[in-house]
Nucleic acid binder design. Sequence first.
DNA 1: CGATTTATAGTCAGGGTGACTCTTAAGGAG
DNA 2: CTCCTTAAGAGTCACCCTGACTATAAATCG
Lengths: 249, 249
Amino acid sequence: MNGRTPPPRPPEGYDPHAFEPFAVTVDLAVLTVREERLHVLLVQRAHEPHAGEWALPGGFVLPRESAETAARRELAEETGLPAGTVAGLHLEQLRTYSDPDRDPRMRVVSVAFTALVPGLPEPRGGGDAAEARWLPYGEHGPLAFDHDRILADARERVGAKLEYTCLATAFCPPEFTLGELRQVYETVWGVELDRPNFRRKVLTTPGFVRPVEGPPRRTGGRGKPAALYRAGEATALHPPLLRPEGRSA
Amino acid sequence: MNGRTPPPRPPEGYDPHAFEPFAVTVDLAVLTVREERLHVLLVQRAHEPHAGEWALPGGFVLPRESAETAARRELAEETGLPAGTVAGLHLEQLRTYSDPDRDPRMRVVSVAFTALVPGLPEPRGGGDAAEARWLPYGEHGPLAFDHDRILADARERVGAKLEYTCLATAFCPPEFTLGELRQVYETVWGVELDRPNFRRKVLTTPGFVRPVEGPPRRTGGRGKPAALYRAGEATALHPPLLRPEGRSA
DNA sequence: CGATTTATAGTCAGGGTGACTCTTAAGGAG
DNA sequence: CTCCTTAAGAGTCACCCTGACTATAAATCG
């Protein structure tokens, strides 16, 4: 904003229709961990341009919406999740992409968000998407527009945030085992972590997780049953949980 | 972006003038360390709304500009710095503010940037600003629009980035002493750091700083002359340099 | 049943950090 | 000139966190 007079070209006053308008959209990089792999929610575009290609879900910001509101609305529309569930999801602004040529039709500025979801509600492909699916990160052809870059930025941001926040619990269901939590780190970072050391770090960080009363649960698979935990009240991680080698995969 | 059809209301096709447009602006939180205090570059608004009030510098994104380009252009215009100097400055996208009511005139979405500058070129108040000045952080009345929030977000972001990046050198002139570098941390974080420990940490982090050949320089004030350093090639800090107590001032 | 897999407990050495002391080299006050 | 103040820079020491590693318990699978 700013009370500046509008841009010199075109030079008129404040008539909203007097100069070339910008369209504002949101794009969503929705990530989840599924079958020990990082997955992304993608939609197949129904219209030109880039019809038939895969893209991040998203859409236009409505006249009376903030970008955050629009992002939650689009997320609910595209995934078919009930609005109540979407309201509780971790949604974070990533950055804004404003290259003048990023959309061939007109000037479109897009505010990108990152969403981390635990369960895997199979999407329904509502709205303008021909189809919506979870695809393993990296196992999709080039995405439409500049979505490959947005997605890469999202993954990098999430990987970095795992180091110094308690964000990893956002990938897990309400009750989870330490093994599941460790899986999140290993999947996003693309590394293997030492089980006992990871356990010690998580349990000695106050407020990271809270144990759940009651009997342990069988993971359904092999191995000794693991205790269940819930996300704690802490949001930051001091000291941080650094990934093994400076950079991620 | 997204090839979605434009929003249902108004429901037309892709005629850029057919629906209510958004204006897109940039706002700049330009920070520096001056006389052992954090300072912000502010401008006094010349026009309504909020005429006469202090605000962050910024302005409209032009039709063929990206937000980053617009931010550098506005920074040069408002501060009077030569374009070459501005090109080398550290400029980073903070986040985008899109509340529907943040500007009373029309729908304005603003991409906020944070800039860190070393020296203190006294600004000239060009452009639409009645005046431009460096003001100590916090010692300014409420700012126009939602600029107080933007500024607070910028300070928090910068404080966090000092922990795990080499960003602090962006506050320093090309050649600086470790005392000046330490001042940056102390000023932004609002804490006192142990001199020997800070020195050890900086010097043992590969690529953080590089010593400058030649004689040491007198700081002009009292105390033993300090050796000079330049910024190194490293950008990340592994392990990080954590502030004493979880949160900043 | 034994092999495998995973959870969980525990040990141990090394590195980084916080707290601290000491010396050196400037400027300022008398 | 001398003493005091200030800050740079060198060095010590103990503690905590971490990575590497071993061991045990409890489940599934063949």
